[in-house]
Amino acid sequence: MIADLPVSVLIASVLAASAPLIIIALGETLTEKSGVINLSLDGVVLFSAMAAFAAAKETGSLGAGFLAGGCAGMITGLIVGYLSIYLHLSQVAVGFALSLLCRDLAYFLGNPYSRIQGPTLLAARLPFHDTLPSFLQNILSQPLTVPAALTLIALLWYFFNATRSGLALRSVGENPAAAFARGLNPNKVQMLAVLAGSFLVGLGGAAYSLSLKPGWGRPQGAEGIGWIALALVIFGGWHPLRVALGAMLFAFLQVSGISLQNIFPSIPAQVFQTAPFPLMIFTLIFMHYSTRKSRISTKPANRLQRRLGLLFMSRAPKSLGKSYQQE
């Protein structure tokens, strides 16, 4: 394994580090399934992280912090939704401008809160903690964000595949005109998806400043995460489980970077901190490219390959990024 890190500690830190990213990436998955790209993620994560920390600090309550983070995310979602769904502006342009605005807004408003102690969500111990073998003890003592993120994967999968509203959302993302003909209101469905998705992104941002990287500062440590989440959604093929697995892969790269630092002391630490970002994006690109090629080639020979093919098959919601004008 990497350096002298016990496997259980490695698994535990990967889970903990991936939880906020999973929540953020799944929030964006929800939004994109309805056909809207919310490109403002990177700034929104910081903005909601700041709002969450400030609210938690002022009220002394973690719950209020998470709620504030979610609401901060939702407000940005309102802007993205209104400008891109109702005013039919370019989703990329709106998202990019909003991303930079939110980042700087977070730095500006968060200034009085930087580098101070505040409430932190700590790892919770299970009631039967002491009866477990130490291997499991390491893995299972996690902050609440971890079980929440894992549950969200299942919930979202269930929502997309087994509920009527999930079907409605997907049909709007595929073909809003047809969905309209079936009596749905595509704009309303998209707006709801953007609001719910950005609420989740806000919660993910809160999970950074209240749990994984407690506190606020410039830089906070969640910079760049939003872009990674956006990439994960695309290369995870808009499938909740694969998006979450991608998030775990990224967390693994981050965690192993820290231990690799000890092995190669001659390489500056800053390189290890930035390395996971390009590595992640190029890994995803490589995976995407290789599976695309194999799909174009002949039919899979055996059942295993067919299963694998299904796992890696991805297709964007057909009307992703296009704005729908109701007639």
């Binding site: 802007i79 400008l83 709106v94 700087d104």
Partner: peptide
């Protein structure tokens, strides 16, 4: 914080849009 300039710049673009 000097990020105020970024806030104004971003706001200009969003308002224009």
């Amino acid at each position: 914080d000097s990020a105020l300039s970024g806030v104004i710049q971003g706001c200009c673009v969003l308002s224009a849009l």
